[in-house]
Amino acid sequence: MSIQHFRVALIPFFAAFCLPVFAHPETLVKVKDAEDQLGARVGYIELDLNSGKILESFRPEERFPMMSTFKVLLCGAVLSRVDAGQEQLGRRIHYSQNDLVEYSPVTEKHLTDGMTVRELCSAAITMSDNTAANLLLTTIGGPKELTAFLHNMGDHVTRLDRWEPELNEAIPNDERDTTMPAAMATTLRKLLTGELLTLASRQQLIDWMEADKVAGPLLRSALPAGWFIADKSGAGERGSRGIIAALGPDGKPSRIVVIYTTGSQATMDERNRQIAEIGASLIKHW
C-alpha cells in the first residue's frame, strides 16, 4: 500500500482519535458579512469528516447552483462504474471539434489522439474542462443518470439537468442544476469515506481534487503551510461562485467545507476574496 493510499485508508482512524471539535460562531459572522459585502445569498456548511456531524452552517438547506462543483460527483459516478466493471479508466475516447464547448483548455489539445477516461476526469476536476465533463456525462448516460446515481446514494436534493455550459445559467428560483450545502457536503463525505467506492477509487477521487489547479484564489489562499486540501470550485452566471473541499491540518483532511453564493453584482475577484476570507476565519478558529 502506498503512503497516499495509507493516508486515505486511515482518515477515519486518525479522526477518531482527534480531540473533540467545537464550532466557532466567528466564522458564521464572516459568512454573514460576506453576504453584506456581496449583496447576495451565501450558503455555508462545515462537517466533521469522521462523524458527519454538522459543526457550523448557514442557509444549509437553500438551493444554490452547483456550477462546476458537480464534476466531482460526476467522476465519482464514473469511478463507481469502474468498480462495477462497467468502465475502464484506460479506455480512450475520441471526439471532434464539434464536441468542444466553451472553456476546454485540455480537451482542445487532444482532438487528434483523444483522451482516456482517467485523463478526462483529471481534466474535468483539476482544470474544470467543460468538454471533458460533457464527454464523461455521455459515458454514464447524461445528466439524468448522474441525478439517479445521487438518488441511489441517498441524495434526493442534488440534481443535474443540463450539460456544460448551460448548467451554469443560475436563474433565480430555478431548481435545475442545483444542490443544497448540506446535501453536497453529505454526498461528498460519502464519496470520500464511505463504502460506495473502493479504496482505490476513493484515493483516485481525492487525488484529482488535491491536484486542483484553478481554485488557488479561494480556500487555498488562506491555508497555512502543512495543511491538506482537496477541492473543486465552480463559477456561473449572475454572480455565482462555489467551492467544495476536504481539508485539515497535519497533512490530512478532517472536515468537509461547502460554500456557495449566487445573485451578486460583485466582480469575480471580490467573490473570490470573500470566500478566501471565510476560509481564513475557519482556519483561525479551527
Rank of each mutant, 00 (worst) to 15 (best):
N168I: 11
D161H: 02
D48T: 01
K232W: 11
E237S: 12
V101K: 01
S96R: 05
A266Q: 15
E195I: 15
T193R: 04
I243H: 07
S201D: 09
E195N: 11
E26H: 01
Q204T: 09
S96M: 02
S68N: 01
L196N: 11
S122V: 15
G248C: 07
E195W: 10
E102P: 10
D99S: 15
E169N: 04
L167Y: 02
L247F: 01
A183M: 09
F64A: 11
K32P: 06
S80H: 11
G279C: 13
I259W: 10
Q274F: 01
D212I: 12
G76N: 04
I125A: 14
T126I: 04
D174L: 05
A185Q: 05
R41T: 11
Q86Y: 08
N168K: 09
R238K: 07
L205K: 12
I140H: 14
M67P: 07
A133G: 03
D231Y: 05
G251T: 06
D83Y: 00
H285S: 06
L73W: 02
G248P: 05
W208Y: 03
M184E: 05
Q203H: 15
A266I: 15
R255Y: 08
T147F: 13
S51K: 13
E62T: 05
L160Q: 15
D177M: 06
G251W: 01
A132Q: 15
L218P: 02
D99M: 10
R159C: 05
A225T: 03
E108G: 06
R59F: 15
S221M: 12
E175D: 00
S254N: 01
M180V: 00
N50M: 12
H94I: 11
S68M: 00
D48V: 00
T138P: 05
P143L: 04
P249R: 08
E46R: 04
Q86C: 13
A34Q: 12
R202V: 14
D177Q: 05
L191E: 02
Q88E: 13
A84V: 10
H151V: 04
Q204S: 09
R91D: 01
T187S: 02
T158C: 12
S233Y: 10
M66R: 09
M184V: 08
V78K: 13
V29G: 08
L120E: 04
P249V: 07
L89I: 03
Y260Q: 01
S201G: 12
K213N: 02
T262P: 10
L150I: 02
I206C: 13
R238P: 08
E210A: 11
T158S: 09
G154P: 05
G52W: 04
R220P: 08
R176H: 02
D155L: 09
L199D: 02
G226N: 07
L136F: 01
T193N: 00
G194L: 10
N98I: 09
D174C: 00
Y260P: 01
D36T: 07
A211Y: 01
A124S: 08
